[in-house]
Deep mutational scan, measured.
Amino acid sequence: MSHKQIYYSDKYDDEEFEYRHVMLPKDIAKLVPKTHLMSESEWRNLGVQQSQGWVHYMIHEPEPHILLFRRPLPKKPKK
């Protein structure tokens, strides 16, 4: 599979999560399941490479070739 064609967005966040999206080329996108969110082993098997802790959290129906990921931000110590 062509890992060079996978595009990784910059990371962005809110108060709770860090987010990123990953755009897959058409040949890989056709392998994305339409019935469920992928486990880490499933998206890694497609060639997506990112650190541990990312969760495929949403399917964007109009653009199924874009995978939406998030992971919890580290808890800030209370002052």
Rank of each mutant, 00 (worst) to 15 (best):
D27W: 04
Q49A: 08
E16Y: 14
K34M: 08
K34Q: 08
H65Y: 08
Y57G: 01
E18C: 04
D13T: 15
K78G: 13
K75Y: 10
V55E: 14
L67E: 02
H60R: 08
T35R: 10
M1Y: 15
K30V: 08
K75P: 13
I66G: 02
W54E: 02
A29I: 03
P33N: 08
H36D: 03
H3E: 14
K30H: 12
R70P: 06
M58S: 11
P72H: 06
V32C: 06
D27P: 09
M38Y: 04
K30L: 07
F69L: 03
L24E: 00
R70Y: 00
P64F: 01
V22E: 03
A29V: 09
K79E: 14
L37E: 03
Y8F: 10
L37H: 00
V22I: 10
H3F: 15
K30S: 10
H56K: 00
W43R: 04
M58P: 03
Q49V: 12
Q49F: 03
V22H: 02
M1Q: 11
K34A: 07
P72M: 07
R71T: 01
D13R: 14
L31R: 12
V32Y: 04
M23L: 14
V55L: 03
W54M: 00
E16R: 12
D27F: 13
H36G: 08
R20V: 04
Q52P: 14
V55D: 07
D10P: 14
W54D: 06
H21M: 10
H3Q: 15
F17G: 02
L24N: 02
K4C: 09
L46D: 01
Y19L: 02
E40V: 05
F17Q: 05
N45P: 03
S51F: 05
D13A: 14
E40P: 08
W43G: 02
V22P: 00
P33W: 01
H60D: 06
Y57L: 03
H3N: 14
K26C: 08
Q50S: 02
E15H: 09
V55Y: 07
L24T: 02
M23R: 13
H3Y: 14
K79S: 12
I6V: 09
K4E: 14
E63P: 06
H65R: 10
M23F: 15
R71V: 02
P74K: 15
Y12K: 10
H36A: 06
Y8S: 10
K34F: 01
S2N: 15
H65M: 07
R70Q: 01
Q5S: 15
H60E: 04
P64Y: 05
H60S: 09
L46F: 08
S41G: 11
D27M: 05
H60I: 07
H65D: 12
Y12A: 08
Y7P: 00
Q50W: 03
K26D: 13
D27T: 08
H56I: 07
L67A: 01
D14G: 06
S39R: 08
G53R: 06
Q50N: 03
I28Q: 08
D13S: 15
K26E: 11
N45F: 05
L46M: 03
Y57F: 11
N45L: 10
R44W: 04
L46I: 09
L37T: 08
E42C: 05
E40R: 06
K4N: 08
G53K: 07
M58G: 13
D10G: 12
L67M: 03
I28D: 06
G53C: 04
S39Q: 10
L67K: 05
P77Y: 12
R44D: 04
H65S: 11
L24S: 04
H3A: 15
I28V: 12
R70E: 03
L24D: 00
L37Q: 00
E42N: 09
L73D: 03
L73V: 08
R44V: 03
I28H: 09
E61M: 07
L68I: 10
R71I: 06
V32F: 06
L24V: 11
P77G: 11
K78Q: 13
I59K: 09
D13L: 10
D27L: 00
Q5L: 15
H21E: 15
Q5T: 15
K34V: 06
G47I: 01
K79I: 12
A29M: 08
V48C: 04
H65W: 10
D27V: 07
R71Q: 00
K79A: 14
E61R: 11
E40Y: 09
K78S: 13
W43D: 01
S41L: 11
F69Q: 02
D14M: 04
T35F: 08
R71K: 11
P25I: 00
Y7V: 15
D14F: 04
V32P: 00
N45M: 11
R71W: 04
H65I: 05
M38P: 05
P72S: 08
D10K: 15
P33C: 04
V48T: 06
H60G: 07
P33R: 04
W54Q: 03
